[in-house]
Computed example of a mutant assay.
Amino acid sequence: MKKIISIVTPVHGQGARFLSEAYTSLRSQSLPDGWSWEWCVQEDGSDVQASAYLPDPANDPRIRISASRRGGPHVARTMAFARSTGVYVKNLDADDQLAAGTLARDIAVLEEHPAVGWTTSRAVDLLEDGSTVSFEGDPAPGRLPRGTAYGFWVEHRRPRIHPATLCVRRPLLALLGGWMALPASGDTGLLLGLDALADGWFVGDTGLVYRKHPGQITTHPHHRAGAEWEARMSLIQEHADALRAWSGLTTDANCPPGAAGWEEPDTKGPDRWRRGMHQRSGYEQA
């Protein structure tokens, strides 16, 4: 029986028109032997009609389309996760594309490093004229020790690594309840929750082509300022601080792993999710 990696895609508004390009990027992925993908497309509302934008999805059994009551993209992602079956869960928004080799790289990291709970990767912006823009400031490729994403976010109120590139072990994502149910930034909330509980891994190769267009949620005037933004940021920090305290990390953003005041938690206590993760994924108990 093949192992499954689940790709979850919320679809709403103008994003549906880009689904065929997302599908093309999925079909181009080469997976390791013994692996297959499933694409859980979640319509955010009853009027999306995602199948109209795909070339006869009934002919590809890997595509699974469903609809739920409108709740925003992060609720739709979580509903797609609820329908998925994969041991690893990968985000792909309807208007974005996976770069060649992305899924194989995510799988390789999580298979080779059982203590790593999640991966993220380099992203480039796709502009309306078809050109792409890359950015400096990514971390060095390799392991991201637990707790290291928090300090940058506290200082800048944005993550250093792109949360749209996340690939997560299923039990860890279930432990956090999926994406935070916010009108925006729910993926940032998930990233900081993952960061509080498990080491991550940054893949230095480009993993995501992130489309910039007028219809996306990040262009909304409330996305980066105002009362809604302040409430989102406050809850994301409270969520991260609670998880950090529960798992044995300090809430001091200036105290990275290994520094004075930081202590690795007892894996028999609050870090017990890790043992369950490996049991569920077929690994030896940590």
Rank of each mutant, 00 (worst) to 15 (best):
M1N: 12
Q14N: 11
R17A: 07
E21V: 11
S28P: 06
Q29F: 05
S30K: 15
P32T: 04
D33A: 12
D33S: 07
W37S: 07
S51H: 15
R62C: 00
I65S: 04
P73H: 09
H74Q: 13
A76D: 09
A76K: 01
T78W: 04
G86L: 02
Y88A: 13
A94D: 10
A104D: 10
A104N: 11
D106S: 12
D106V: 01
L110A: 08
V116N: 12
G117R: 01
R122E: 03
G130H: 13
S131F: 02
T132P: 01
D138S: 01
P145A: 07
G147P: 00
A149K: 06
G151V: 00
R160N: 04
H162A: 04
R169W: 03
P171D: 11
P183R: 14
D187K: 04
L191N: 03
L192S: 03
L197Q: 11
L208E: 08
K212H: 06
I217L: 13
I217H: 13
P221N: 11
A225H: 08
A227W: 06
A227C: 05
M233G: 11
A245L: 09
E263I: 02
E264T: 08
D271F: 02
D271W: 14
R272N: 12
R275Y: 10
S281M: 15
